[in-house]
Structures are given as structure tokens and as C-alpha cells.
Simulated scan of single mutants.
Amino acid sequence: MVSVSEDRRHGPWPAVRSGVDGKRIVVTGGTRGLGEQIVRLLLTDGASVATCARSEPDLAALAKSLPDDQGREALFTQALDVVEPGLLEEFVEGAAERFDGLDGVVACAGGARGGGLEEADAHDWAATWELNVGHTARLVRAAVPYLRGARGTGGGSVVVIASISGWKPGPQAQYGAAKAAQIHLAASLARELGPDGIRVNAVSPGSMLIPGKRWDRMRVAQPEAFARFATEFPNGQLVAPQEVARVVAFLLSDASSGVSGAHVPVDRAQNAPSAEGY
């Protein structure tokens, strides 16, 4: 069993194996926030993981921080920007060669460019689309030849990290539109790739409390505003990235062999997707 990590707001994380032992998985955007937690959980539970990020120092820091018992040889990293033509495809090919195949991919890299409608120009909308939807489509397309030969009863598994903003309206519109497209993309690809034994699902995290990020900064600098925002959650707690990572790991495991084309919110029943409300 793995050791239990502690979080003061959520209590101890249970030492429960996710069922990905021996799986070979690609995760984009794996050095920070949710992506980092997904990579760490998969490695802890015995998977071989390939991850990419734009910063080589961040990738080196991730590898250096891993406990020896996780086996650093199970981690393959490459610095790249997922929107650069050809680089993502080469990374997937390299990961498949390193691990002698692939069993799953997680499209976690994402984000938004520009501000509100009057501040964001056409380039911001196009960049946001490419970072979220375009990168996801290219990742899956590159991985399909390898996922057809996936191990286990669950076949190949694709997990698309969307967002609560993809199905509950809130600013920024370009980000919400791209995340909504990812949810639809997952359902469509599940139908298209099902005959090849490949499952595709979307996971929509709620507002996550990540150290140093937006909501954590609000918690520290604007405690009253943060407390009001917390009322959007029935139990008063924002979702933690570790909670989302456990759901992603389940969808990559053979235990979820009957789940495909699903949209899975992991948001603690959050109401409005932002502190500005609906």
C-alpha cells in the first residue's frame, strides 16, 4: 500500500490502489496542478507514465521529487508546446517506443487566452481552441494506432480533462466554449473508436483548490470573498486535484471497462462555476 498524504481541508487521502498497475499512459501538462497529481498517482500505483510540459526545468523537478520506490525509470518526459505542429505526435510515438505500446492517454494541458468578449480578439479565441480542443484531437489521433493494442480487459482508454465551465456558463466565453467542445468531442470519439476497443470519456473538474493558484490566492488575500464563493459548494469545500486524479485513474483502469462516452463532473456538486456567480 502507498503512504497516505495529508491535506488540512480534506483530511487524509485513502491508500487505495487505482488498478493501473502495468498500464502505459501519456499525460499532457503533467508538471503542475491537476496534471501533476495525475502523474504522481499513476506512478505510485504502478503505471509507466510519459508526460510533457513547456518547461524542461519543471519536468526535471518533477522527476527529482519522485520517491525512489516509485521507480523513476517508469517516467518518460519531454519538453514541448502541445500546439506546435508535429511535436506532440513525435512525443506520443517516442512514449510508445519507450514503453512498447500504450494503454491510455490523458489530455490535461489546457487554458485560455485573452479576457472578456471585448478584450479577446480572434487570435485569442483561436489559441484557446487549439490549446484545448486541437491538442486533444491531435493527441488521440496520434495515440490510436497504439491504443488498439492496449493490454487488459478495458482496452485503450482516453480521458479528456474538460471543466465545469464547459457545461455551466461563466466567463471567459472562449474557454467555456472550448471546454464544451471537448465534452462533445469525447462523446463523439467514443462512438467512432469503440469498434477499435478504445474508450473515451470526459472529466470536468470543479473549481480546484491548488496551492498558489487563483482560488488559493483568494483564500489567503480575500478570505471573506473566498468564504462567499465556498457557499457554492454544498459542504463548503472546493474540490481537490487529488480527488479528480483518482477519478481519472479509475477511467484508465480495467475496472471502468463498461464506461465510455461519459461526461463525469468531479466538482462536489458545485453550483456557479466562478466567484462571480451566474
Rank of each mutant, 00 (worst) to 15 (best):
P171N: 02
K168Y: 02
A177K: 11
L185W: 07
V159T: 11
V200N: 05
I161H: 08
T153M: 05
G154K: 03
G170S: 14
Q182G: 00
Q182N: 13
Q182M: 12
W167N: 15
Y175V: 00
V160L: 03
R191M: 14
Y146R: 10
I198C: 11
S188N: 14
G149S: 11
I183S: 10
G197Q: 04
S157L: 13
A173Y: 10
H184N: 15
A181K: 12
A180S: 13
R151V: 03
Q174L: 11
L189W: 11
Q174N: 15
L185Q: 13
L189M: 15
Y175C: 06
G170D: 08
H184D: 13
G197T: 00
S157E: 07
E192K: 09
A150M: 12
G197V: 06
V159N: 15
K179G: 05
V200E: 01
G152N: 10
V159P: 08
H184F: 13
S165I: 00
L189G: 07
Q172W: 07
S188V: 10
P171G: 01
L193W: 02
A162R: 09
G149P: 00
V159W: 08
R151D: 14
S163V: 01
P195F: 10
K179I: 01
P195K: 04
I161T: 10
S157Q: 06
I164L: 15
S165Q: 15
L147Y: 02
G176C: 12
A186F: 05
R199H: 04
R191P: 00
Y146E: 10
L185R: 07
A177S: 15
Q172K: 03
Q182S: 02
S163H: 06
A150D: 11
P169H: 04
A186K: 05
G152V: 08
L185T: 11
T153N: 06
Y175F: 12
G154F: 04
A187I: 04
K168G: 05
D196L: 14
A187P: 00
K179W: 03
G194I: 01
V200W: 08
G170R: 08
P169E: 07
G154D: 02
W167K: 09
D196C: 08
G156F: 10
L193G: 00
I164F: 02
Q172G: 05
V159I: 09
A181M: 09
K179T: 04
A180E: 09
L147H: 05
A180C: 05
G154W: 01
Y175K: 06
A181D: 09
G170Q: 10
I183G: 09
K168V: 05
A181E: 08
Y146P: 01
A150N: 12
S165Y: 10
G166E: 10
S157P: 01
L147N: 08
A177C: 13
A187Q: 15
G194E: 06
V158Y: 09
T153F: 00
A181N: 09
S163W: 04
S188Y: 12
R199M: 03
A173W: 06
K168R: 14
S188E: 12
Q172R: 07
A178Q: 03
K179Q: 13
L189P: 03
T153P: 09
V158G: 12
A186W: 13
P195H: 07
I161A: 03
L185F: 14
S165N: 14
K179M: 08
D196F: 12
S163E: 06
A173N: 13
A180P: 00
Q172Y: 11
G154A: 10
Q182D: 14
D196V: 03
G194P: 02
P171V: 04
